[in-house]
Design a protein around this nucleic acid. Structure first.
Length: 423
RNA sequence: GGAGGGGUGGCUGAGUGGUUGAAAGCACUUGUCUUGAAAACAAGCAUACGUUUACGCGUAUCGCAGGUUCGAAUCCUGUCCCCUCCGCCA
């Protein structure tokens, strides 16, 4: 959520920013509602001040003049009218503000589609094979690591079963990634609810922007996490962080659920785009002045996962039109998948500045006695499964159809190769 | 799920319709005193909105949302959460 003050003070800048994202923002309606709201507040406050004085006098007086009480009755009903005006204006303002995305950083690549994304760097050599590398859905099936048909039988299309060493490889990846971020990058591990309430998904910006993508339990109005970001953001909702605490680094492993409504018919083979997947998510609460630097460090933490798995990857900076609503700058990490001959998005790291903090009312006190300020939030996958699993299967496949386990995972898998005989 | 109890400022805890944003204590900050510290004493110590060049002023907030009233922390309704006992249960 943007601050109303920013929109009031520099509406043209906000208009330009929205244009660069391909978003519409009803700035004029907002300013009009703001005007209505403020004049109603001014009048209501004056009337209440008058009523407070009179009520105090009446409380002490022996006489209760009927005409004065009659006047106050009128004052009371006028205040109620004004309160309705204020409430309606507030609701209108809020509804608009919840829909307006963040203002991108000045130097973020401008463009409305992913075509305008910029490749920041490519790390590692693309592997060459002296045989035809298979896509992961064939490898997974051949090795008995992935069961697509039964996944569909249990649930629906785009669901899958990992089995045997395939399941274990994913579990090893998860454990290793969490350990890396906790032991070497200074994150605190968190286990969070996988179903969260409406306030939580609104605070993160997933409502209203991502509503169609989330699974929703109507009976209790609970929402299945589309990402741990939504949950972690609300850990400090409605709090004031005392001096000396920030920055806070959290990492959580959760399942993520997405309807993939807008991807119908796309990536239908394999487990690249599925309704349920696991993710290790990093999240930071930081002081505003540090958030740009913290984003670079966050990306470095995520990149390290790909680097240590010894797979080629590249880092993109997303264009204004391709970023999610809360972000002012986003880097994606993509690992090369030789079977499918494509770059696989395995991480998205964003600086959301005060966008989520304002929605969630998360503030911090710079020093004892100082006024609270909104803090900045950042999030990044570190990394997303099962796409890393796909990348491992395809990058580490051998001529005989087996798959070697990346060195660094072997203490976690307790095996170094997945072979056909394992199925 | 059934029965009962309870939600007041950073914490503890008064307050049942009228100078109560809210007693008191603790914690915290500053000052006095002290060689220093402690103790003692004094003062300060919430958040948001509106208004103001500024000092400031006004309004709101006692889980949340409505209602009654000239006036609500206090009365009424709904709702959320917590605690105790019973039942059920990974």
């Amino acid at each position: 959520m943007l601050s109303l003050e920013l929109i009031r003070n520099d509406p043209d800048m906000v208009r330009r920013a929205m244009e660069s994202r391909g978003a519409s923002a009803p700035i004029d309606e907002l300013l009009e509602l703001d005007q209505q709201r403020r004049s109603a507040i001014a009048e209501a406050d004056q009337l209440r001040a008058r009523r407070n004085v009179v009520s105090r006098e009446l409380g002490q007086a022996k006489e209760r003049p009927a005409e004065l009480i009659e006047e106050m009755r009128g004052v009371g009903s006028r205040i109620r009218e004004l309160e309705d005006v204020i409430r309606v204006a507030d609701e209108g303002i809020n509804a608009h503000l919840l829909n307006i995305p963040n203002v991108p950083r000045e130097d973020a690549p401008i463009g409305l589609t992913e075509e305008s994304n910029v490749v920041e760097r490519t790390v590692g050599e693309l592997p060459t094979f002296d045989f035809e590398p298979l896509p992961h859905w064939e490898l997974g099936r051949n090795l008995g690591a992935i069961d697509f048909e039964r996944g569909v039988k249990l649930a629906a299309s785009r669901f899958y079963i990992l089995q045997g060493k395939g399941a274990r490889l994913q579990r090893a990846l998860t454990d290793w990634m969490i350990d890396l971020h906790v032991d070497q990058h200074g994150y605190q591990e968190m286990y969070v609810p996988f179903l969260v309430n409406r306030d939580t998904v609104t605070a993160s910006g997933h409502l209203p922007h991502f509503q169609e993508e989330m699974y929703h339990d109507e009976e209790d109005d609970l929402w299945m996490l589309p990402t741990a970001e939504a949950a972690i953001n609300s850990i400090h909702r409605d709090e004031i962080i005392e001096p000396g605490i920030l920055p806070l680094y959290y990492v959580a492993h959760t399942p993520c659920w997405r309807r993939e409504k807008f991807s119908a018919g796309r990536d239908t083979r394999g487990i690249k785009r599925v309704h349920q997947f696991e993710k290790v998510e990093m999240f930071k609460f930081v002081e505003p002045e540090t958030s740009d630097d913290e984003l670079e460090k966050l990306v470095a933490n995520a990149e390290e996962v790909a680097a240590k798995l010894e797979m080629p990857y590249r880092v993109l900076q997303l264009s204004t039109g391709d970023m999610s609503a809360p972000a002012v700058r986003t880097y994606d990490i993509e690992i090369w998948a030789p079977g499918g001959q494509e770059w696989l998005e395995v991480s998205s790291c964003s600086n959301c500045t005060d966008y989520q903090a304002r929605r969630a009312k998360i503030r911090y006190r710079p020093e004892a006695g100082a006024r609270p300020r909104l803090l900045h939030t950042l999030n990044g996958s570190g990394l997303a499964l099962p796409r890393v699993l796909i990348a491992i299967l395809e990058n580490y496949q051998q001529a005989d159809g087996s798959v070697i386990v990346p060195e660094i995972l072997r203490p976690y898998t307790h095996f170094d190769r997945i072979e056909k005989a394992d199925s």
